[in-house]
Each structure stands twice: as C-alpha cells, then as structure tokens.
Design a protein around this nucleic acid. Structure first.
Lengths: 249, 249
DNA sequence: CGCGTTCTTGACTGCTTTCAAAGATGGTGG
DNA sequence: CCACCATCTTTGAAAGCAGTCAAGAACGCG
C-alpha cells in the first residue's frame, strides 16, 4: 500500500514494536503518526534527562541508542539498561513523576511524545504501554541475574542475545548482524566489569566463534552456542534450595 | 478511636505504606479493610507463585517476608528482590499477566487481594499503586548498581539501609533494630556473593561497628557511617564520562 | 536430647582488576 | 589527501577480592 510507503521511516521501530505488543486500531495509529510529526533530537553524548528531574510527559524513542545510568560519588558508573528504538521513557502513571536515573544519548536520539491512550476505546495503546512496562521489568530482573550470577564471558553473551532480541522486536534488525554503537567501556559499565576485561572476553568470544563485535557492528556467529550459554538464564522449579510443598496463588 | 483499635493488626503495614504513598479516602480505606478480611497464608519456604504462571489478580503482602528469584539450570540462584509487608505482587495493567519470576515465602506470608481502585473517583488508591510501582523500579535499579559496582562490604551495608528504609516506610519497624529472617545464604544469593564471603563481611562489619546481624535480628550500629558508605550510591551530574552540553527533555 | 540447618574457619585457587603504555581508529582541518 | 588529535582498543605483569572445598561448631526446632 502506498500509505505505508509514505510513512516517515523513523516511525517504524516504535510503531512496529508497539503494534506487536498489542494491535492498534486506525485511530491509535493516527495518534502515533501525529505524535511522530513533532520530534525532538538529542545529539550523541548529551543527557536526555537527569535523575531527580520532573518528567513532563512520557516519550518514545524513534531512533538511536540511549542508556540509563548512575554515577557514584567516587566516579564509578553503572549503566542500568540501554534504551533502543521503540522503547518508552518515563511511562509512569502517578502525579508529578521524577526521573529515577539519568538518561543519556549514546548516538543521536530522536524522540516524540507518547500519545495518551484514548479513554474507553480500543485499549490497544494502553495495553501496548502496559506490556512494554512488563517487558522492561523483565529485562531489569534479567540484568540483575546477569550481574549477580553470570561470569564475565556469560554476561556478554547473554546481554548480546537480549539486544538482538530487542532489535528484532522493534524491527530494527532482522538477523544476527547489526549496528552496535557501544564502546567496550560502556559494555563494562553495563556489565559490572572493566573495559580491559571486556576486551579480553570479546577476544575469547571471537576466538571461540561465538560473537564478533568490531567497528560499530556486532555479529552473532554461533547463535545455538550463544543460546545454550544464555539459556542458563532460564529458571526452573522452586525458588527455594530446600523447598516445602507448593500451593500457589 | 475505637475503630482503629479494632483494625486487624496485620492490615497495618500495607495500610500505612499505601496511605503514605497517597492519602486514601474513606471509601478506599473500606475497600482495603474488606480485602484484608479474606487473606491467604503461605507457609515459610513454600512458593507463592512460579515463573510463567498466570497471575489471577494483584495482591498485597500483609505480613511476612518473601523474595523473587530465578534458578539457573546449573543450580546457581539469583534473588532479585525481597518483598516486605505492604509490597504489591503482580500489579500489572495488561491482559493475562504472567509471573516474571518465582516468588517464594521466606517466613509465613499473609496476602490479600489488592482492591481495584474506584473508577473516576478519588484516585488515591490508583495513585498509591502507581507510586509503589515507581518505587519498586527504583529499588531494582539500585540493586543493579549495587551488584555491578559495589564491593561485597558495600553491598551488604547498602542493602541493609534499603531494608531499614522500607520497613520504616511500612511502619513495620521504627528504629535501627528489626527482626531479620534472612540467612546468610539468602543474602549471598541476593547480593551476588557466596555464603562464606557474606559471613566474613558480616564479621568485618561487626568488628567495624557498623552492623550486627545475628540470631534473626539486625541492628544498624552506626547509621551515619552506614549512610556515608551507602551514599556512594547517590548519583551526580551527567551520565557520560566525557559529556557534551546538556539540553534536557 | 538429637538431628538438620546454619554459621564459622582455614588453606588454596582463580577470575577480575589495576596500572601503564603502546597501537589502532576515525573524524577534522589544512 | 594526509597529518593530527582525541577516543577507543589492545597488551602484559602483578595484585586482590571473592570463590571453592572441606570440616567442624553452633544453633534451633521438635
């Protein structure tokens, strides 16, 4: 359809991701087009939002990579998550929300306001937002597991698998190779490592034929092997080491 | 007032916490009393909910300690967070939510259903729920920073300060000493350490006069010193190591 | 009082960090 | 088109924090 050909290209990732989370009706699509008509661009390496600052309204990332981080008083930095095209920013539902972390643009980042869902109507948009929040909570929980219990080698693989999945979800990548604007120092600050050790592990991963991260691109060389390693992340059974009988909610 | 004297005691933590997050009106209070009239109890060391299982409706913890965790296929366990009295479970706003992690009862745990907020009315309850979710996201982000960038010694202090704050918030503790039903093995699985190392760090913390954790109780011996250590958690400035000029959202 | 769980201790190993310096890369302006 | 500069990557050697393994002590519940 011609209509699709006329869509502003930068809308696609956000559109695809939300629509996949919950099908949107025509009016909701229109809301998104309308919102995407007025964008805001942040240049690479600038801050989009600072911790403690009020959030005027939720936004959607149309294009670019950003991250949420905290810097300790002695200079240590922890990146809590990366934000990719289609991700939501500041989607809180209480009065006067405030940024819980600083959000920084790694590449140039294009944002638009997240349209308010239509009340008492096809709830596709509200549903998509809610699912997106759940998904995000899942990523945070997974990152906690990654940091607490995986080795450096495993952390890198597991996170790359997550990035790959999220890019596919937004339709921003279709395969095992994608643009990857992340320095080794950033990966280190995300994964609780040092840049030196990240460098060594990336070499090992390349040597082992699992991953290639080089020159702003990443390739998953051996997806089955990566999934096998990353699959350790998948839980089972009871949360107790020595559990009693279960009787669920 | 006699009415208050007649309140079931186990309602207090949840009631206090929610009411502090956003003032509830009389009808909303009534909803809570009503919900708390029918409780569900889980015995210590049983699972309340398993990863992947559908969540019939959100619940409130009236009493007891629980935790969310994931166990890797090789037996490694990561506890993502502890759930304390007044905390919410499964507060998702999309259709057919599913548990993102297993939730296990550490002590006996008493739950009740979280009442649906009254539509188009004093939005105190909805506001309290939303604020609770924000708070929880903040705790997850802080835990990520803890795991990624704090030493074992710092992790323990920082987490104990969080627990203390959360207990006070729920009115379940008023001071620097509180019941603490957490084994060293659990702390290890929460903080990404081994039980052996947690043991050694707790000894060091006692020796240094910061914390005493013993016999099911915890005491903060030197709160200023603990806060100073934990304060490293407080961020500053730009998220970038070498940042450009900021121009915020 | 007895048994399982939890805590404690010691010696040894090893993954990851630290520090420092050299090499590669990419964008910019002459 | 190339020199230049900041940023990013790579390397090596040494140190350290935390893990592993194993065994004994203490605790708490029935």
């Amino acid at each position: 359809m011609t209509v699709i050909a006329l869509e502003p290209s930068y809308v696609n990732p956000a559109f695809r991701r939300l629509n996949a989370l919950s099908p949107l009706d025509r009016e909701e699509e229109a809301l998104l087009w309308q919102a995407a008509a007025s964008t805001r661009t942040f240049s690479a390496r600038s801050d989009i939002l600072r911790e403690g600052q009020p959030i005027p309204q939720p936004h959607i990332i149309l294009e670019g990579w950003a991250y949420r981080s905290r810097i300790l008083s002695d200079g240590r930095r922890q990146i809590q998550q990366f934000l990719l095209p289609g991700d939501l920013i500041g989607m809180y539902q209480h009065a006067d929300p405030v940024a819980l972390t600083t959000i920084s643009a790694q590449t140039n980042v294009v944002l638009c306001a997240a349209p308010e869902p239509l009340a008492g109507h096809g709830s596709g948009l509200a549903e998509a937002y809610a699912r997106s929040r759940s998904l995000e909570e899942g990523y945070l929980l997974r990152h906690i597991t990654r940091l607490g219990r995986l080795s450096a080698y495993e952390r890198i693989v597991d996170w790359m698998m997550e990035v790959s999945e999220r890019l596919v979800r937004a339709g921003a990548s279709s395969g095992d190779s994608f643009a990857f604007p992340v320095t080794q120092e950033l990966m280190a600050d995300l994964l609780g490592l040092t840049n030196v050790h990240v460098n060594r592990m990336l070499q090992a991963l390349l040597r082992d034929g699992l991953l290639k991260v080089h020159g702003g691109w990443a390739s998953i060389l051996d997806r089955p092997a990566c999934e096998r390693l990353s699959e350790t992340t998948w839980g089972v059974a009871s949360g107790h080491r020595r559990g009693a009988a279960a009787r669920f909610l």
